[in-house]
């Protein structure tokens, strides 16, 4: 009986985490297309519902009613598994994201490692989808994107080390609390920029959307997918983008902390600040999609391995020696 109540309690909590995320993913797709439209002096989606807010719901409905086509030569199991894995991984990572000091599903010791591990697993959805389709364009797209994601993970890992040097703990709440006096975006500004660009590459967003470069690869690894399975890839992608924004705001923008601990700002509830920061980062993602042309593949690899990796390594040495010289290294555990 005791187990049953715990189980029901946990499922209840998980549902209350997952459903708002799915709804916000739908809203964020609308925001993305709207910003994209406005930058190009178009209106963007504005017909379905107030301001076109229900556009994504209408799209999702359309996808649900479309037929799911599985190619005859595809590897059926893996073909079906791929979008499920993408979607699940994108949602599972949200378990450790703190929206306030107490509002977090599981406050684990190695939160940031967990996030990093889950985001590095994200590549499997793409490889599996591309390979199982048994067709040239998806396979090429999958290989490209796997190489891209593995490359940029390296620099994201080293950027995380930079932040961890200043914090001295892998717990996400500790990372946020240690930014009480100074957000890490100020002392580690170059790392914030590198993190942001790597996050663009990690989530396959323009200007790094090579896996699905329409002009070269039709739609990359999604070419053979249709109906709800395509929609799952698509939702997973946007949930991943939101996750990267959340990670950026926790690591550099002080998570759920208000910008200044003064009267009108600190009565605003903590989750509001977190959501505001995630939306701000997402707005940057959306603007960049609209204003930057696509990278060529060799340029992408050069940027990852020859520019970001050495630069962030040098910054690790700099941060470490600064902390050591001024005796600012975090002491012990929190």
């Amino acid at each position: 009986m005791e187990y049953l109540t715990t189980l029901i309690n946990e499922i209840y909590k998980i549902l209350f985490l997952v459903i708002p995320i799915l709804v916000s993913v739908a809203m964020i797709v609308w925001l993305d297309r709207r910003v994209w439209g406005l930058v190009q002096k178009r209106r963007g989606p504005n017909v379905v519902g107030p301001f076109g807010l229900f556009q994504t719901l209408a799209d999702a409905l359309k996808y649900i009613f479309k037929e799911i086509i599985i190619p005859a030569s595809a590897n059926k199991t893996i073909f079906i598994l791929a979008p499920i894995i993408t979607m699940t991984l994108a949602l599972v990572a949200w378990a450790v994201i703190p929206l306030s000091e107490t509002l977090v599903l599981s406050n684990i010791n190695v939160g940031i490692l967990y996030l990093f591990a889950i985001s590095s697993l994200g590549v499997y959805g793409i490889i599996m989808g591309g390979w199982a389709s048994n067709s040239k364009y998806p396979f090429l797209g999958a290989i490209r994107s796997a190489a891209q994601m593995v490359s940029y993970e390296v620099s994201i890992g080293i950027i995380i080390i930079n932040v961890l040097l200043c914090v001295g703990s892998l717990n996400l709440n500790d990372i946020v609390l240690s930014q009480k006096n100074l957000w890490y975006v100020i002392p580690l500004f170059p790392m914030f920029v590198v993190f942001f660009i790597s996050a663009l590459a990690e989530t396959n967003r323009p200007p790094f959307d090579l896996p699905e470069a329409e002009a070269e690869l039709v739609a990359g690894y999604q070419t053979e997918y249709s109906g709800m399975m395509y929609a799952m890839f698509w939702l997973g992608e946007y949930a991943n983008i939101l996750l990267m924004c959340a990670m950026g705001s926790i690591l550099f923008l002080g998570g759920w902390l208000p910008p200044l601990d003064i009267y009108p700002l600190n009565i605003v509830p903590a989750p509001f600040w977190m959501i505001f920061k995630i939306l701000f980062l997402f707005f940057l993602f959306a603007i960049i999609k609209a204003i930057v042309p696509r990278y060529r593949y060799d340029q992408l690899m050069r940027l990852g391995w020859k520019v970001f990796l050495p630069f962030s390594l040098i910054y690790v040495v700099l941060t470490a020696s600064f902390l050591l010289y001024f005796d600012k290294l975090p002491k012990g555990s929190f």
Binding site: N109, L113, A117, S120, L121, V123, V150, G157, L170
Partner: peptide, 18 residues
């Protein structure tokens, strides 16, 4: 938990992809 996460990151995230 540290070992488990490192196993996931290194083996699943990098080695198995290759």
């Amino acid at each position: 938990e540290f070992l488990g996460m490192i196993l996931l990151i290194v083996y699943v995230g990098a080695v198995a992809v290759l």
